[in-house]
Each structure stands twice: as C-alpha cells, then as structure tokens.
Design a protein around this nucleic acid. Structure first.
Lengths: 217, 217
DNA sequence: GTCTATATCGCGATAGAC
DNA sequence: GTCTATCGCGATATAGAC
C-alpha cells in the first residue's frame, strides 16, 4: 500500500513538473507571438512533445494561457507582498528603494512573464481581467494606502500616491517590455546588468527626490 | 483636359481618404486583438466594407499593419520633433514639462496608436524593427544629447540622461498602455481628463525634482 | 471598384488504437 | 500517456463576372 501511494505520488510529481516545464516554454512563446499568434504546435515543439500530447495536459490553449498568467502572478506576488509588509518603523526611502529594486529585478529575471502580462493588459485584459481585479488591484491599493499613511504622518511629501505608484510601476515594467527598443537606442543586442543598476539609481533618484519631505525647522 | 486631371485627382483623394479611414479603424482592432488576433474581416466590417473590398486597397494584412504603424509614427514624430527643436535659451524645466505634456497628450488622444506600437515593441519588433531603428531611435538619441548638453552646462543635475528619457517615456506611455489596469485600480470604467492632469503634475514633479541643479552659492 | 465564389492553408480540438 | 489520423472551422488571399 505504501508502494501504491508512493507510486501515485511520484507520478503526480512528474506530471506537475512536466506541466510546469510546458508553462515555462509557453510563457516565452506567448510573449514573442501574442496569444493568438502563439500556436499550440510551436509551444509543444519547443517543449519537446507532440501537440496532441501537450493537449493531454492542457485541454485547451486558453487553459494553458491562464496557467501561464497564474504563474506570472504567483511569482510577482511572492516577490512584492513580502515588501508590502513594511513595518511602521521602516524608513519610506528604504522601502521605496527596495520596492523599485524588487520590481526591476522581476523585469530582469522574468522578462517574458512581464511581457505576457503587459500584452494581456494592453489588449484590454479580456481573458484575465477578473484575476487582475481579485489578485493585483488589492495589492496596488494597499501600496497606495501605505504611501498615503506616510504622507499623513509627514514622512514623505504630499504627492499623489496613486500616480506615484503608477509611475514606479511604469518605469520598472518598461525594462522588460520595452527592452527591444532600449537595446536599439543603446546600440546593443540586449540589456546588460550594468544598465539595470543605472536604471535603479535613476528611478530611485526620481522617486526619492519627488517625495523628499520639506526639511524640518 | 482639366476635367480629366481633376477627375483623376479627385478619385485619388477619395482613395486616399478611404485608405486613411480603413487604417483608422484598423489601429483600434489591432490594439484590441493583436496582429494575429485581428482579422481582416473584422476590420472590414467595422469600416463598413467587404473583406474583399478592403483587400483591394490593402493587398495583404501586413501592408495594412505597416500602414497603421506608419501613421502612428507620423503622428508621434510630428508632435515630438517640434519640441525637440528647443532653443538654447529655453529653460530645461519648461522643455521637460512641455515634453511630458505632449507625450501624455498623445497617450490620451491616440491610445490605440500607443498600444499597437507598444505591442509591436514588446513582441520584439519583428515586423517594424527597421523602421524603429531608422525613425525613432535617432529622435531618442537626440533627446538624450539635449539632456547631456544641459548637464555639461550645469543647467540640470548630472543624472543618467538615457535612463531619464526611458523613465519619461515609460511613465507617459503607460497612461495609454496600462489604462485598463489603472481603471481597475481607480474603480472606474475609463481614465478621465482629471487623471491626466494629476498624472502630468506627478510626472513633472518627479522629473524636475530629479534634475534640480544644486543651488548656486 | 465592388461583387460572388472559391482556393488553400493552418489552427484548435477530438477519436481511438495501443 | 503517447501515438496516428482526422475533423471542422476560420483565416488570408485569389479569380473572375459585372
């Protein structure tokens, strides 16, 4: 009986790993081709199995796409929520810097994830809007409230907290989404690590300068 | 003979108008569905003609798509190059504010144009990379050089000019591209004009605070 | 220029043997 | 679980009458 359970469990683990591998390939293809432009056959080929076999694990293309977006959100939320748990003792400047660093890091380490999410939003979030409403928006709202508490306590300057967050999101996101254009401007094939630390410095400088509280008298 | 020429000219004008109208419809469909997701039949239907008739004016879908992107670039360049002609007498703060305002205005007035361009870049600019290299990159490079001249002259603080431009681009662009997510955060159906003036204030505050030159002694 | 009709293809998805 | 075979659909694109 132990053997039987262990065998079933192992099979489940294998299945889980394979599904994860397929999703990892799919995120890149969706990012490069868009949802409609990505064909199940292409994803299957790059994942090293047949189209029909892929569809044994993911019954429809849309299910695979939603799994990809779920993985994107899981990763992003895991990175971002630990930050949002900033205690009232933490200095706003340190929290903001860490926030920028984490989001930029996500753009560097998971550029395809960032792009698939971006394309879904740009096209109107028709397939994934409900998940965004339920999982992303509450996190962003809480971040905005944190900013507003800081403002109310006089710890940062009275900026528009919502648009400040939009700005941070936009600047960090763009290092994944607009990387092709940035590479053209910089005359390189890809964005190097050096560019990301320059990006972090520049973004942090802008955010921190904007929220600098009036000097105490 | 005058009649003949005038008739031919009129026909050409009509054809030009119709092609422009089709492109104006197509930009919205491409923005909402992506290149592959947008069907010629859908565009034709919304433009009020048959699919076959549309393909009389645009022989292939890709030609129509490139025309759409050409129009996007024409509009954007026309708005942006007049600004870049900033004389050496103009105050950097005024030029930056005008730049932010113009780009934000483009996001508000031509959201579909902004989105189609963004999706093309995110997916790797496979179809339009050459045009971006030839028409967009030089403009961005010149903007960066303007920033660097200001820095060399001590008129703004010594920031990374390239990343400053990337940041301005990202923040302004996002008000078209991420409008669906912003609307969800704000709990509204669309972004109102009020949000754009708040956006402009916040972005300008960040940029100007970051480039504020050290006070003269 | 606009119509009807159709060619040709690739797509997502399914059926059933093993 | 993986294979071969195939269905049905919608897509781009074309041909030819008027």
């Amino acid at each position: 009986m132990d053997d039987k359970l262990a065998g079933a469990s192992r099979r489940m683990q294998n299945r889980g790993r394979l599904e994860g591998d397929i999703a990892a390939v799919a995120v890149r293809v969706f990012a490069e081709c868009g949802y409609e432009g990505a064909s199940v056959a292409t994803i299957a080929e790059q994942a090293g199995l047949s189209k029909q076999n892929l569809m044994y694990y993911y019954p429809t293309k849309q299910v695979l796409y939603e799994r990809v977006l779920d993985d994107v959100l899981d990763d992003w939320l895991a990175r971002m929520t630990q930050l949002a748990a900033a205690g009232p003792d933490d200095a706003p400047a340190d929290v903001l810097r860490a926030y920028i660093q984490a989001k930029l890091r996500f753009s560097r380490e998971q550029p395809y994830a960032s792009r698939v999410y971006a394309m879904e939003v740009i096209a109107g979030a028709r397939l994934y809007g409900e998940q965004i409403r339920e999982r992303v928006v509450p996190v962003l709202r809480r971040d905005i409230e944190t900013f507003e508490r800081w403002i109310a306590a006089g710890r940062i300057a009275p900026v528009n907290a919502t648009h400040l967050l939009f700005a941070i999101w936009a600047m960090t996101q763009s290092y994944a989404d607009f990387a092709p254009q940035m590479a053209l401007v910089l005359g390189r094939d890809d964005l190097s690590g050096h560019d990301f630390s320059d990006a972090e410095d520049t973004i942090a400088r802008m955010v921190l300068a904007a929220v600098q509280p009036p000097a105490e008298k």
